[in-house]
Amino acid sequence: MASSLTVSNVDAGYGAVRVLEDVSLTVEAGETVALLGTNGNGKSTLMKSIMGIVRPSAGRITATIDGASHELVGRSTEEIVDLGIAFVPEGRRLFPKQTVTENLLLGAYRPKARSAIARNLDFCFETFPRLKERARQLAGSMSGGEQQMLALARALMSSPRVLLIDEPSVGLAPLLVSRTIDKIKELKEGFDLTVLMAEQNFTQAVRIADRGYVIVHGRIAFAGESAEALNNNELIREFYLGA
């Protein structure tokens, strides 16, 4: 059944510092939506607002999970994850002293995910054979690319319906970036997910995105209804393509 996300007129920030102003966006069921913007424009703040890590001072955030609608503002992060919304945060935030397998099993903490644990684990190991090879290695001792894979796999262990990913390409070598983006597409299809992905790497993000939003100084500056519309947009040419 359908799962989607709607952000309506959200203001949010840190203490007295207002970062997001009147932000609205939607991610329809089954879509991959890119949230584009250079450093410091509020991509992470928006993701944190959706996840209940930053509390919006105005606006509504609604998630529809398998047909049931939930207001997210005011809920704790763990409640939001429990609804079926997984988040791969900036910096990945693995448990560095736990092994790969332990990290993955922690991903399945959500009661709804526990019955699917064997199937999800197989799927993760199939998609990321490297993780299977390193199953007993400590997460903190792995390379950046492997850590990003583990972070994605761990998020999927919670059997999510909606997946938020904050800058999957950060800190990865160019070849790994495109491979990671491909993997996200593969996971999205395998799990039938609805995806919102923040990226600075415009070219890579647009490869797999159905649509995208450009965020500038905490406001949605442009909503591109297709990858093509994004490619042809002036703002994007200015910011990303150096034209």
């Binding site: 945060p89 448990f95 736990q98 922690l106 903490y109 959500r110 761990r154």
Partner: peptide, 23 residues
Amino acid sequence: SFTGRAIEAVAQDPLALRLMAAD
């Protein structure tokens, strides 16, 4: 156990644990 594994991880990164749906 799920609770047990969460206990082993909680001091490393409480926010990450929230993202696993654990308080």
